[in-house]
């Protein structure tokens, strides 16, 4: 989080007065192709029975795809690092939320007594 002045000055006008990086066409096409290949891969991977690993493989491929989109299509690789920090922070908080809610429900679910609480089916 540096001073906004030096930031603006350091970026400087390039590409006809703009700050943003123009992503080369080759990169865009390569990313697109990679995303398609990964989509095929994720559909194929689910057909192989690997037990609980299947979920993690699917999530890993999805994360790889998402990273490609964020880094190249959304210019994060060429952008201010702070924008990346903002985005990653949001992801971390989602993980915090999901993991604690899961941890807690995993712990109390087995203790639920069917029909004990009103509205709870027997």
């Amino acid at each position: 989080m540096s001073d906004s002045y030096s930031e603006a000055a350091a970026a400087g006008p390039e590409h006809g007065g703009s700050v943003s990086h123009v992503v080369p066409m080759k990169v865009l096409i390569a990313v697109w192709a990679a995303l398609l290949v990964l989509t095929i891969l994720t559909v194929a991977a689910i057909k192989v029975d690997l037990g609980s690993l299947n979920l993690w493989i699917a999530m890993a491929i999805a994360t790889l795809k998402a990273s490609l989109v964020v880094l190249y299509f959304m210019h994060m690789r060429y952008d201010r690092p702070f924008n990346a920090i903002v985005f990653v922070t949001a992801l971390l908080f989602v993980m915090l939320f999901v993991s604690i809610a899961m941890l807690d429900s995993k712990a109390y679910e087995p203790e639920l007594v069917p029909g004990y609480a009103p509205g709870m089916p027997k």
């Binding site: 949001a90 992801l91 989602v94 999901v98």
Partner: peptide
């Protein structure tokens, strides 16, 4: 966009 991620985060949860 981060707020969007958190909005969907509830459903992912």
């Amino acid at each position: 966009l981060s707020t969007e991620i958190l909005l969907f985060g509830g459903l992912f949860c």
